[in-house]
Design a protein around this nucleic acid. Structure first.
Length: 446
RNA sequence: CGGGGCGUAGCGCAGCCUGGUAGCGCGUCGGUUUUGGGUACCGAAGGCCGCGAGUUCGAAUCUCGCCGCCCCGACCA
Protein backbone atom coordinates (compact mmCIF):
# COMPACT_ATOMS: atom_id res chain seq x y z
CA UNK A 1 0.00 0.00 0.00
CA UNK A 2 1.29 3.40 -0.97
CA UNK A 3 0.84 5.97 1.76
CA UNK A 4 -0.18 8.60 -0.81
CA UNK A 5 -3.18 6.42 -1.66
CA UNK A 6 -3.91 5.11 1.81
CA UNK A 7 -6.15 6.64 4.46
CA UNK A 8 -4.06 7.23 7.54
CA UNK A 9 -5.23 10.31 9.42
CA UNK A 10 -2.50 10.58 12.05
CA UNK A 11 -2.67 13.26 14.71
CA UNK A 12 0.29 15.17 15.98
CA UNK A 13 -1.47 16.26 19.10
CA UNK A 14 -3.37 14.13 21.56
CA UNK A 15 -7.13 14.58 21.67
CA UNK A 16 -8.25 15.75 25.08
CA UNK A 17 -10.73 12.98 25.75
CA UNK A 18 -8.21 10.15 25.69
CA UNK A 19 -6.89 9.23 29.11
CA UNK A 20 -5.05 5.97 28.72
CA UNK A 21 -2.18 5.25 26.41
CA UNK A 22 -3.91 2.79 24.10
CA UNK A 23 -6.82 5.16 23.52
CA UNK A 24 -4.46 8.08 22.86
CA UNK A 25 -2.34 6.06 20.46
CA UNK A 26 -5.30 4.61 18.60
CA UNK A 27 -6.64 8.10 17.99
CA UNK A 28 -3.24 9.51 17.08
CA UNK A 29 -2.42 6.62 14.76
CA UNK A 30 -5.71 7.10 12.95
CA UNK A 31 -7.08 3.69 13.90
CA UNK A 32 -10.49 4.66 15.22
CA UNK A 33 -12.91 7.54 15.30
CA UNK A 34 -15.46 7.95 18.04
CA UNK A 35 -19.05 8.06 16.87
CA UNK A 36 -20.67 8.45 20.27
CA UNK A 37 -19.78 7.43 23.79
CA UNK A 38 -18.27 3.95 23.64
CA UNK A 39 -19.01 3.49 19.91
CA UNK A 40 -16.31 3.74 17.28
CA UNK A 41 -15.67 3.56 13.58
CA UNK A 42 -12.64 1.48 12.70
CA UNK A 43 -10.43 3.31 10.23
CA UNK A 44 -8.21 1.30 7.86
CA UNK A 45 -5.24 0.88 10.18
CA UNK A 46 -7.38 -0.11 13.14
CA UNK A 47 -9.55 -2.37 11.05
CA UNK A 48 -6.49 -4.13 9.66
CA UNK A 49 -5.31 -5.01 13.17
CA UNK A 50 -8.79 -6.06 14.20
CA UNK A 51 -8.99 -8.46 11.27
CA UNK A 52 -5.61 -9.98 12.06
CA UNK A 53 -6.67 -10.63 15.63
CA UNK A 54 -9.92 -12.11 14.40
CA UNK A 55 -8.03 -14.41 12.06
CA UNK A 56 -5.86 -15.80 14.85
CA UNK A 57 -8.93 -16.37 16.98
CA UNK A 58 -10.69 -18.16 14.12
CA UNK A 59 -7.71 -20.39 13.44
CA UNK A 60 -7.21 -21.40 17.03
CA UNK A 61 -10.89 -21.98 17.66
CA UNK A 62 -11.14 -24.29 14.71
CA UNK A 63 -7.90 -26.02 15.58
CA UNK A 64 -9.49 -26.86 18.93
CA UNK A 65 -12.58 -28.25 17.23
CA UNK A 66 -14.98 -25.33 17.48
CA UNK A 67 -17.19 -24.64 14.48
CA UNK A 68 -17.80 -21.10 13.20
CA UNK A 69 -21.32 -19.76 12.80
CA UNK A 70 -22.76 -16.25 12.73
CA UNK A 71 -25.77 -15.25 14.77
CA UNK A 72 -27.64 -11.95 14.48
CA UNK A 73 -26.97 -8.83 16.50
CA UNK A 74 -30.70 -8.18 16.89
CA UNK A 75 -32.55 -10.77 18.92
CA UNK A 76 -36.19 -11.26 19.86
CA UNK A 77 -37.05 -10.49 23.47
CA UNK A 78 -39.15 -13.63 23.82
CA UNK A 79 -36.06 -15.80 23.74
CA UNK A 80 -34.72 -13.91 26.71
CA UNK A 81 -38.03 -14.05 28.52
CA UNK A 82 -37.83 -17.83 28.37
CA UNK A 83 -34.44 -17.91 30.08
CA UNK A 84 -35.55 -15.33 32.58
CA UNK A 85 -32.79 -12.96 31.67
CA UNK A 86 -34.93 -10.33 29.90
CA UNK A 87 -35.79 -8.81 33.24
CA UNK A 88 -32.63 -9.90 35.01
CA UNK A 89 -30.25 -8.17 32.65
CA UNK A 90 -31.18 -4.61 33.53
CA UNK A 91 -30.55 -1.37 31.66
CA UNK A 92 -27.27 -2.67 30.26
CA UNK A 93 -29.39 -4.35 27.62
CA UNK A 94 -30.36 -2.12 24.72
CA UNK A 95 -34.04 -2.75 24.15
CA UNK A 96 -35.66 -1.74 20.90
CA UNK A 97 -38.99 -2.17 19.15
CA UNK A 98 -39.52 -2.98 15.52
CA UNK A 99 -42.26 -1.39 13.38
CA UNK A 100 -44.78 -3.90 14.66
CA UNK A 101 -44.03 -2.90 18.23
CA UNK A 102 -42.39 -6.25 18.87
CA UNK A 103 -39.81 -6.20 21.63
CA UNK A 104 -36.33 -6.78 20.30
CA UNK A 105 -32.88 -6.22 21.72
CA UNK A 106 -29.34 -5.69 20.53
CA UNK A 107 -27.63 -8.79 21.84
CA UNK A 108 -25.21 -8.42 24.74
CA UNK A 109 -24.39 -12.14 24.39
CA UNK A 110 -25.79 -15.20 22.69
CA UNK A 111 -26.35 -18.07 25.15
CA UNK A 112 -30.09 -18.11 24.60
CA UNK A 113 -29.84 -17.99 20.85
CA UNK A 114 -27.23 -20.69 20.50
CA UNK A 115 -29.12 -22.92 22.90
CA UNK A 116 -32.26 -22.47 20.84
CA UNK A 117 -30.37 -23.43 17.69
CA UNK A 118 -28.84 -26.46 19.33
CA UNK A 119 -32.18 -27.56 20.67
CA UNK A 120 -33.80 -27.33 17.25
CA UNK A 121 -31.46 -29.84 15.66
CA UNK A 122 -29.74 -31.88 18.32
CA UNK A 123 -31.62 -34.32 20.50
CA UNK A 124 -29.37 -37.32 20.93
CA UNK A 125 -26.18 -38.16 22.72
CA UNK A 126 -24.91 -38.90 19.20
CA UNK A 127 -25.19 -35.18 18.39
CA UNK A 128 -22.71 -34.16 21.07
CA UNK A 129 -20.12 -32.98 21.83
CA UNK A 130 -20.62 -29.82 19.80
CA UNK A 131 -18.72 -26.57 20.09
CA UNK A 132 -20.06 -23.61 18.13
CA UNK A 133 -18.70 -20.08 18.15
CA UNK A 134 -19.02 -16.82 16.35
CA UNK A 135 -17.32 -13.47 16.21
CA UNK A 136 -19.96 -10.79 16.27
CA UNK A 137 -20.64 -7.27 17.46
CA UNK A 138 -22.33 -6.98 20.81
CA UNK A 139 -23.82 -4.09 22.65
CA UNK A 140 -23.90 -3.46 26.35
CA UNK A 141 -25.15 -0.08 27.41
CA UNK A 142 -22.47 0.50 30.00
CA UNK A 143 -23.15 3.24 32.50
CA UNK A 144 -19.82 4.77 31.78
CA UNK A 145 -17.92 3.69 28.70
CA UNK A 146 -14.26 4.69 28.78
CA UNK A 147 -10.74 3.86 27.71
CA UNK A 148 -11.59 3.83 24.01
CA UNK A 149 -12.22 0.35 22.64
CA UNK A 150 -11.17 -1.24 25.92
CA UNK A 151 -14.46 -0.44 27.51
CA UNK A 152 -16.82 0.46 24.72
CA UNK A 153 -20.54 -0.09 24.52
CA UNK A 154 -20.35 -1.73 21.13
CA UNK A 155 -17.61 -4.33 20.97
CA UNK A 156 -16.51 -7.26 18.87
CA UNK A 157 -16.46 -10.49 20.76
CA UNK A 158 -15.76 -14.11 20.08
CA UNK A 159 -18.22 -16.17 22.01
CA UNK A 160 -18.28 -19.91 21.87
CA UNK A 161 -20.61 -22.47 23.38
CA UNK A 162 -20.05 -26.12 24.14
CA UNK A 163 -22.71 -28.81 24.46
CA UNK A 164 -21.97 -32.07 26.19
CA UNK A 165 -23.87 -35.04 27.48
CA UNK A 166 -22.52 -34.88 31.00
CA UNK A 167 -20.26 -33.04 33.38
CA UNK A 168 -17.09 -35.01 32.59
CA UNK A 169 -17.45 -34.43 28.87
CA UNK A 170 -18.14 -30.75 29.48
CA UNK A 171 -14.95 -30.42 31.48
CA UNK A 172 -13.03 -31.81 28.53
CA UNK A 173 -14.59 -29.14 26.34
CA UNK A 174 -13.60 -26.61 28.96
CA UNK A 175 -10.02 -27.83 28.88
CA UNK A 176 -9.98 -27.65 25.09
CA UNK A 177 -10.85 -23.99 25.31
CA UNK A 178 -8.32 -23.41 28.05
CA UNK A 179 -5.59 -24.75 25.76
CA UNK A 180 -6.98 -22.90 22.72
CA UNK A 181 -6.93 -19.63 24.65
CA UNK A 182 -3.37 -20.15 25.83
CA UNK A 183 -2.34 -20.74 22.22
CA UNK A 184 -4.36 -17.78 20.95
CA UNK A 185 -2.82 -15.27 23.32
CA UNK A 186 0.69 -16.65 22.93
CA UNK A 187 0.43 -16.21 19.18
CA UNK A 188 -0.40 -12.57 19.74
CA UNK A 189 2.69 -12.18 21.86
CA UNK A 190 0.67 -11.69 25.01
CA UNK A 191 1.21 -13.13 28.45
CA UNK A 192 -2.36 -13.92 29.40
CA UNK A 193 -2.77 -15.57 32.77
CA UNK A 194 -5.83 -17.66 33.57
CA UNK A 195 -7.20 -16.58 36.93
CA UNK A 196 -9.88 -18.14 39.02
CA UNK A 197 -13.06 -16.20 38.41
CA UNK A 198 -16.43 -15.78 39.97
CA UNK A 199 -19.19 -17.13 37.83
CA UNK A 200 -20.67 -13.65 37.34
CA UNK A 201 -24.17 -12.84 36.14
CA UNK A 202 -24.28 -15.82 33.80
CA UNK A 203 -23.93 -18.37 36.58
CA UNK A 204 -21.97 -21.59 36.91
CA UNK A 205 -18.84 -22.52 38.83
CA UNK A 206 -15.91 -23.71 36.69
CA UNK A 207 -14.62 -20.35 35.55
CA UNK A 208 -11.42 -18.58 34.60
CA UNK A 209 -10.65 -15.14 33.33
CA UNK A 210 -7.60 -14.50 31.17
CA UNK A 211 -5.79 -11.33 32.10
CA UNK A 212 -2.79 -9.67 30.60
CA UNK A 213 -0.63 -7.69 32.95
CA UNK A 214 -0.57 -3.96 32.27
CA UNK A 215 -0.21 -0.93 34.48
CA UNK A 216 -3.47 0.50 33.24
CA UNK A 217 -5.42 -2.67 33.94
CA UNK A 218 -8.82 -2.25 35.53
CA UNK A 219 -8.43 -5.16 37.93
CA UNK A 220 -5.92 -5.74 40.67
CA UNK A 221 -4.28 -9.13 40.30
CA UNK A 222 -2.40 -11.32 42.73
CA UNK A 223 -0.35 -14.16 41.42
CA UNK A 224 2.49 -16.59 41.79
CA UNK A 225 5.33 -15.48 39.53
CA UNK A 226 5.76 -19.01 38.20
CA UNK A 227 2.52 -18.83 36.24
CA UNK A 228 3.84 -15.92 34.18
CA UNK A 229 6.78 -18.00 33.01
CA UNK A 230 4.66 -20.89 31.78
CA UNK A 231 4.60 -21.26 28.02
CA UNK A 232 3.23 -23.74 25.55
CA UNK A 233 6.07 -22.89 23.23
CA UNK A 234 5.98 -25.32 20.37
CA UNK A 235 4.00 -27.94 22.28
CA UNK A 236 1.95 -30.04 19.89
CA UNK A 237 -1.53 -30.30 21.30
CA UNK A 238 -3.89 -33.13 20.48
CA UNK A 239 -7.25 -31.66 21.32
CA UNK A 240 -8.79 -35.12 21.60
CA UNK A 241 -6.24 -36.19 24.19
CA UNK A 242 -8.06 -35.77 27.47
CA UNK A 243 -5.02 -36.49 29.59
CA UNK A 244 -2.84 -33.96 27.80
CA UNK A 245 -5.47 -31.24 28.07
CA UNK A 246 -6.09 -32.01 31.71
CA UNK A 247 -2.36 -31.74 32.28
CA UNK A 248 -2.26 -28.32 30.62
CA UNK A 249 -5.22 -27.24 32.72
CA UNK A 250 -3.54 -28.46 35.88
CA UNK A 251 -0.25 -26.78 35.17
CA UNK A 252 -1.79 -23.42 34.43
CA UNK A 253 -4.30 -23.39 37.24
CA UNK A 254 -2.18 -24.81 40.03
CA UNK A 255 -0.23 -21.62 40.83
CA UNK A 256 -2.17 -18.99 42.71
CA UNK A 257 -3.60 -16.37 40.32
CA UNK A 258 -6.64 -14.32 41.17
CA UNK A 259 -8.18 -10.93 40.57
CA UNK A 260 -9.27 -8.73 43.43
CA UNK A 261 -12.78 -10.17 43.01
CA UNK A 262 -11.72 -13.60 44.20
CA UNK A 263 -8.47 -12.76 46.00
CA UNK A 264 -7.91 -14.47 49.36
CA UNK A 265 -4.99 -12.87 51.14
CA UNK A 266 -4.49 -15.67 53.64
CA UNK A 267 -4.56 -18.32 50.95
CA UNK A 268 -2.20 -16.24 48.82
CA UNK A 269 0.34 -16.12 51.62
CA UNK A 270 0.04 -19.80 52.42
CA UNK A 271 0.40 -20.91 48.79
CA UNK A 272 3.05 -18.52 47.52
CA UNK A 273 6.45 -17.75 49.07
CA UNK A 274 6.99 -14.05 49.51
CA UNK A 275 9.63 -13.73 46.81
CA UNK A 276 7.24 -15.14 44.21
CA UNK A 277 4.22 -13.02 45.10
CA UNK A 278 3.25 -10.55 42.42
CA UNK A 279 0.68 -7.82 42.91
CA UNK A 280 -0.09 -6.04 39.67
CA UNK A 281 -2.90 -4.85 37.46
CA UNK A 282 -4.49 -6.69 34.60
CA UNK A 283 -6.81 -6.36 31.64
CA UNK A 284 -9.33 -9.07 31.09
CA UNK A 285 -9.24 -10.33 27.50
CA UNK A 286 -10.97 -13.68 27.80
CA UNK A 287 -13.36 -15.57 29.98
CA UNK A 288 -14.26 -19.25 30.00
CA UNK A 289 -16.81 -20.96 32.14
CA UNK A 290 -18.80 -24.08 32.54
CA UNK A 291 -22.39 -23.34 33.43
CA UNK A 292 -23.91 -26.78 33.45
CA UNK A 293 -27.62 -26.83 32.71
CA UNK A 294 -28.38 -23.19 33.49
CA UNK A 295 -29.76 -22.51 30.01
CA UNK A 296 -30.59 -26.00 28.80
CA UNK A 297 -33.09 -26.55 31.61
CA UNK A 298 -35.27 -23.47 31.17
CA UNK A 299 -35.00 -23.73 27.38
CA UNK A 300 -35.50 -27.48 27.48
CA UNK A 301 -32.41 -28.32 25.43
CA UNK A 302 -32.37 -32.05 26.10
CA UNK A 303 -30.47 -34.98 24.67
CA UNK A 304 -31.37 -38.62 24.93
CA UNK A 305 -28.71 -40.78 26.56
CA UNK A 306 -27.78 -44.27 25.32
CA UNK A 307 -30.07 -45.51 28.09
CA UNK A 308 -32.99 -43.61 26.61
CA UNK A 309 -33.13 -40.99 29.32
CA UNK A 310 -33.65 -37.33 28.40
CA UNK A 311 -31.17 -35.04 30.15
CA UNK A 312 -30.44 -31.34 29.79
CA UNK A 313 -27.15 -30.74 27.99
CA UNK A 314 -24.18 -29.44 29.90
CA UNK A 315 -23.02 -26.14 28.52
CA UNK A 316 -19.97 -23.96 28.64
CA UNK A 317 -19.40 -20.46 27.36
CA UNK A 318 -16.13 -19.01 26.14
CA UNK A 319 -15.52 -15.36 25.34
CA UNK A 320 -12.68 -13.37 23.89
CA UNK A 321 -12.86 -9.58 23.70
CA UNK A 322 -11.63 -9.18 20.15
CA UNK A 323 -11.94 -5.40 19.85
CA UNK A 324 -10.70 -4.97 23.40
CA UNK A 325 -7.59 -6.94 22.47
CA UNK A 326 -6.56 -4.19 20.08
CA UNK A 327 -6.36 -1.80 23.00
CA UNK A 328 -4.86 -4.39 25.32
CA UNK A 329 -2.13 -5.20 22.81
CA UNK A 330 -1.18 -1.53 22.69
CA UNK A 331 -1.18 -1.28 26.48
CA UNK A 332 1.28 -4.16 26.49
CA UNK A 333 3.33 -3.01 23.49
CA UNK A 334 4.22 0.66 23.25
CA UNK A 335 6.84 3.24 24.16
CA UNK A 336 6.93 7.01 24.32
CA UNK A 337 7.06 7.23 20.52
CA UNK A 338 4.04 5.10 19.82
CA UNK A 339 2.77 1.61 19.21
CA UNK A 340 4.98 -1.46 18.77
CA UNK A 341 2.99 -4.19 17.00
CA UNK A 342 3.96 -7.82 17.42
CA UNK A 343 4.63 -9.35 14.00
CA UNK A 344 1.62 -11.63 14.40
CA UNK A 345 -0.94 -8.82 14.43
CA UNK A 346 0.75 -5.90 12.72
CA UNK A 347 -1.34 -4.13 10.07
CA UNK A 348 1.66 -4.19 7.72
CA UNK A 349 4.71 -6.41 7.95
CA UNK A 350 7.08 -3.62 7.05
CA UNK A 351 7.16 0.11 6.49
CA UNK A 352 9.17 1.20 3.47
CA UNK A 353 10.49 4.74 3.79
CA UNK A 354 11.59 6.69 0.74
CA UNK A 355 13.84 9.42 2.07
CA UNK A 356 14.01 11.37 -1.16
CA UNK A 357 10.84 11.14 -3.13
CA UNK A 358 11.51 12.38 -6.64
CA UNK A 359 15.12 11.20 -6.77
CA UNK A 360 15.26 8.76 -9.68
CA UNK A 361 17.64 6.29 -8.05
CA UNK A 362 15.84 6.27 -4.71
CA UNK A 363 12.40 6.01 -6.30
CA UNK A 364 13.57 3.10 -8.45
CA UNK A 365 15.12 1.28 -5.51
CA UNK A 366 11.93 1.72 -3.50
CA UNK A 367 9.71 0.49 -6.31
CA UNK A 368 11.92 -2.54 -6.71
CA UNK A 369 11.82 -3.32 -2.99
CA UNK A 370 8.08 -2.73 -2.89
CA UNK A 371 7.56 -5.33 -5.62
CA UNK A 372 9.98 -7.84 -4.11
CA UNK A 373 8.49 -7.59 -0.64
CA UNK A 374 5.03 -8.14 -2.06
CA UNK A 375 6.32 -11.10 -4.06
CA UNK A 376 7.70 -12.51 -0.81
CA UNK A 377 4.20 -12.41 0.61
CA UNK A 378 4.81 -9.48 2.91
CA UNK A 379 2.43 -6.58 3.37
CA UNK A 380 4.13 -3.23 2.91
CA UNK A 381 3.19 0.32 3.76
CA UNK A 382 5.29 2.38 1.38
CA UNK A 383 5.77 5.98 2.46
CA UNK A 384 6.04 7.60 -0.95
CA UNK A 385 5.10 11.06 0.29
CA UNK A 386 7.46 14.01 0.00
CA UNK A 387 7.56 14.61 3.73
CA UNK A 388 10.87 15.12 5.41
CA UNK A 389 12.75 12.21 6.94
CA UNK A 390 11.97 13.19 10.51
CA UNK A 391 8.25 13.35 9.88
CA UNK A 392 8.26 9.99 8.12
CA UNK A 393 10.17 8.30 10.92
CA UNK A 394 7.90 9.79 13.53
CA UNK A 395 4.81 8.52 11.71
CA UNK A 396 6.26 5.04 11.30
CA UNK A 397 7.12 4.92 14.99
CA UNK A 398 3.69 6.17 15.96
CA UNK A 399 1.80 3.55 13.96
CA UNK A 400 4.15 0.87 15.24
CA UNK A 401 5.08 -1.27 12.25
CA UNK A 402 7.64 -3.73 13.64
CA UNK A 403 10.17 -3.27 10.83
CA UNK A 404 11.18 -0.20 8.88
CA UNK A 405 13.13 -0.33 5.67
CA UNK A 406 14.73 3.03 4.92
CA UNK A 407 16.00 3.91 1.47
CA UNK A 408 17.97 7.10 0.88
CA UNK A 409 20.56 8.48 -1.52
CA UNK A 410 23.36 8.25 1.03
CA UNK A 411 23.05 4.52 1.63
CA UNK A 412 22.19 3.75 -1.94
CA UNK A 413 25.57 5.09 -3.07
CA UNK A 414 27.17 2.16 -1.26
CA UNK A 415 24.40 -0.22 -2.24
CA UNK A 416 22.69 -0.53 1.14
CA UNK A 417 19.37 0.18 2.78
CA UNK A 418 18.62 0.36 6.49
CA UNK A 419 16.48 -2.21 8.26
CA UNK A 420 15.35 -1.02 11.68
CA UNK A 421 13.54 -2.91 14.39
CA UNK A 422 10.81 -0.87 16.06
CA UNK A 423 10.95 -2.79 19.32
CA UNK A 424 14.68 -2.69 20.02
CA UNK A 425 15.58 0.37 17.99
CA UNK A 426 18.45 -1.59 16.50
CA UNK A 427 19.21 -1.12 12.84
CA UNK A 428 21.57 -2.56 10.29
CA UNK A 429 22.64 -1.69 6.80
CA UNK A 430 22.41 -4.40 4.19
CA UNK A 431 21.74 -4.87 0.53
CA UNK A 432 18.13 -4.60 -0.63
CA UNK A 433 17.98 -8.29 -1.47
CA UNK A 434 19.42 -9.27 1.90
CA UNK A 435 16.83 -7.06 3.59
CA UNK A 436 14.00 -8.82 1.76
CA UNK A 437 15.44 -12.20 2.66
CA UNK A 438 15.77 -11.26 6.30
CA UNK A 439 12.21 -9.96 6.50
CA UNK A 440 10.92 -13.06 4.79
CA UNK A 441 12.72 -15.18 7.37
CA UNK A 442 11.32 -13.14 10.25
CA UNK A 443 7.76 -13.61 9.08
CA UNK A 444 8.03 -17.24 8.08
CA UNK A 445 5.99 -19.44 10.34
CA UNK A 446 3.86 -16.73 11.94
C1' C B 1 -27.16 7.08 38.69
C1' G B 2 -24.35 10.43 42.59
C1' G B 3 -20.14 14.03 42.49
C1' G B 4 -16.94 17.23 39.35
C1' G B 5 -15.45 19.43 34.62
C1' C B 6 -15.85 20.79 29.53
C1' G B 7 -18.45 22.05 24.54
C1' U B 8 -15.11 28.41 20.37
C1' A B 9 -11.67 26.22 12.75
C1' G B 10 -9.75 19.20 11.36
C1' C B 11 -6.71 18.84 16.38
C1' G B 12 -4.88 21.40 20.99
C1' C B 13 -6.38 25.86 23.34
C1' A B 14 -7.18 31.48 24.69
C1' G B 15 -11.19 34.98 24.90
C1' C B 16 -16.27 34.66 29.06
C1' C B 17 -15.26 37.29 35.43
C1' U B 18 -15.74 43.24 33.58
C1' G B 19 -21.32 42.19 26.77
C1' G B 20 -19.34 46.04 21.52
C1' U B 21 -19.28 42.19 14.97
C1' A B 22 -13.62 35.97 17.17
C1' G B 23 -7.99 34.92 18.20
C1' C B 24 -3.27 31.74 18.91
C1' G B 25 -0.43 27.16 17.94
C1' C B 26 -0.50 22.69 15.06
C1' G B 27 -2.58 20.74 10.67
C1' U B 28 -4.52 21.99 5.48
C1' C B 29 -3.77 24.81 0.58
C1' G B 30 -0.20 28.07 -2.60
C1' G B 31 4.94 29.83 -2.86
C1' U B 32 10.19 30.21 -1.49
C1' U B 33 13.62 27.41 1.34
C1' U B 34 15.34 22.87 3.35
C1' U B 35 16.61 17.61 2.37
C1' G B 36 18.90 10.99 6.87
C1' G B 37 14.83 12.78 12.90
C1' G B 38 8.26 16.47 13.16
C1' U B 39 13.05 22.80 8.75
C1' A B 40 12.37 28.18 8.31
C1' C B 41 9.90 32.23 6.11
C1' C B 42 5.79 34.56 3.14
C1' G B 43 0.69 34.25 1.77
C1' A B 44 -4.34 31.96 1.90
C1' A B 45 -8.62 29.20 3.03
C1' G B 46 -11.40 27.44 7.04
C1' G B 47 -16.02 29.06 12.57
C1' C B 48 -24.74 30.44 12.75
C1' C B 49 -18.55 30.26 19.51
C1' G B 50 -23.20 22.55 21.05
C1' C B 51 -28.86 23.64 20.53
C1' G B 52 -33.17 26.59 22.08
C1' A B 53 -35.40 30.50 24.72
C1' G B 54 -34.68 35.01 27.52
C1' U B 55 -32.24 39.88 29.21
C1' U B 56 -30.07 43.93 26.22
C1' C B 57 -29.52 48.97 21.33
C1' G B 58 -26.02 44.84 21.04
C1' A B 59 -24.62 38.04 23.64
C1' A B 60 -19.05 33.38 22.50
C1' U B 61 -19.47 36.43 27.03
C1' C B 62 -25.17 37.34 31.47
C1' U B 63 -29.91 34.08 32.84
C1' C B 64 -32.93 29.60 32.18
C1' G B 65 -33.75 24.94 29.77
C1' C B 66 -31.99 20.99 26.76
C1' C B 67 -28.22 17.94 24.29
C1' G B 68 -23.36 15.93 23.97
C1' C B 69 -18.51 14.60 25.78
C1' C B 70 -14.76 13.73 29.65
C1' C B 71 -13.08 12.59 34.78
C1' C B 72 -13.98 10.15 40.01
C1' G B 73 -17.37 6.39 42.20
C1' A B 74 -20.82 1.99 42.03
C1' C B 75 -21.18 -1.89 37.33
C1' C B 76 -18.79 -4.78 33.34
C1' A B 77 -15.72 -8.74 27.64
Amino acid sequence: MRLTRYFLPVLKETPAEAQIVSHRLMLRAGMIRQSSAGIYSWLPMGYAVLRRIEEIVHQEQQRAGAIPVLMPTIQPADLWRQSGRYDAYGPEMLRIKDRHERDMLYGPTNEEMITEIFKAYCGSYRDVPKMLYHIQWKFRDEIRPRFGVMRGREFLMKDGYSFDVDHAAAIHSYNQMMAAYLRTFERMGLKAVPMKAESGPIGGDHAHEFLILAETGESGVFLDRTVVDLSLGGTAIDFDDRAQLQDIFDRWTAPYARTDDTHDEALFHSMVPEDRRVEARGIEVGHIFYFGTKYSEPLQALVTTPEGEKVPVHGGSYGIGVSRLVGALIEANHDDKGIIWPESVTPFAVGLVNLKQGDAAVDAACEDLYAKLAAAGLTVLYDDTDERAGAKFATMELIGLPWRLTVGPRGLKSGVVELACRRTGASEELSPDAAVAKLRAIYTGL
